[in-house]
Design a protein around this nucleic acid. Structure first.
Lengths: 156, 156
DNA sequence: CAAATTTCAGGCCAACTGAAATTT
DNA sequence: CAAATTTCAGTTGGCCTGAAATTT
């Protein structure tokens, strides 16, 4: 019995965006193997954002990370419930909630980021360091073209 | 008033997989602009798959495209309802439903593929043809490492 | 008053699990 | 009978809309 043909449509494989899409599906499998400590990518981006920028209002987190404000509510609920962040009214504008990292949040964020790095390493394992650099640069240039505001000045 | 800082966390931007993820979000916005004629990416992959491989049982579509069999049901319902594909019992194994493209399905698939190509072009517009080739090659090599069965023999 | 911020209710789609129904 | 295939019911997460509540 012949092995069934499992190849993806050639017409789609020719599109870099389609191959990227398939690779994104790989990242889910790899992350599942490595363990995410209960923190999904949105949680991680929030932790990293607060670690790098300091306390922020929800609106600002939302704008930076392109997380919908209404979705942010549940994500911050998760982080508060597990003691990684907390909300407090902004005294100078009581409409705003300032979100801060706890020490635990800082530490767990570091560990979860290390897992994300290991996942990235596993994904691009077949590439040499130089090739990864090349790839990263091409991706950054492409992204910079569509969303320059989200990159630090050096990249634009 | 200073413009608010919208930059993404640097720690994450250093990961190619994270940048890829951001680019995938761009593809949604671009596709929305170009119009998908009611056919999302899974529908398109099915149309391309049938166009290139001929009639297949649902199990085989599922295995090739990594679409969950239970999700495939609704997708094929969509394609049948709009007259792009049809199911018929396999006479030699009545457990199987053979799925075939209609002429309309072939034609609409071609058009929707053209839209996907335009989206891909728009996404990688800042890159030269040579750079796109480079990028595509790096992505394919990476993908081949994780899922070689889904690539034609030449790529593995 | 209008505008900004957070929150809630609910929709859609992608991905998955578990089980029923039919057939081999 | 067990196994394969399709289908259905239900869950979760990411992304979105619309509207309520509070505050400026």
């Amino acid at each position: 019995m012949a092995a069934p043909d499992l190849t993806l449509p050639d017409s789609l494989l020719r599109l870099p965006s389609f191959v990227m899409f398939q690779l994104l599906r790989e990242t889910r499998r790899l992350t599942a193997q490595l363990g995410d400590e209960g923190l999904r990518l949105p949680h991680l981006t929030i932790l990293c954002c607060l670690a790098e920028a300091g306390p922020l209002a929800q609106k600002d987190i939302s704008a930076r990370l392109r997380i919908d404000p209404s979705d942010l509510v549940a994500l911050l609920d998760d982080l508060e419930r597990t003691g990684l962040a907390n909300r407090q009214r902004d005294a100078t504008d009581r409409r705003r909630h300032l979100v801060s990292l706890t020490e635990a949040g800082r530490e767990v964020g570091r560990r979860r980021l290390a897992t994300a790095r290991r996942m990235d390493d596993a994904l691009f394992e077949p590439l040499t360091a130089h090739e990864r650099e090349q790839l990263h640069h091409l991706l950054m240039r492409t992204y910079a073209h569509h969303d320059p505001d989200r990159l630090p000045a050096g990249y634009r």
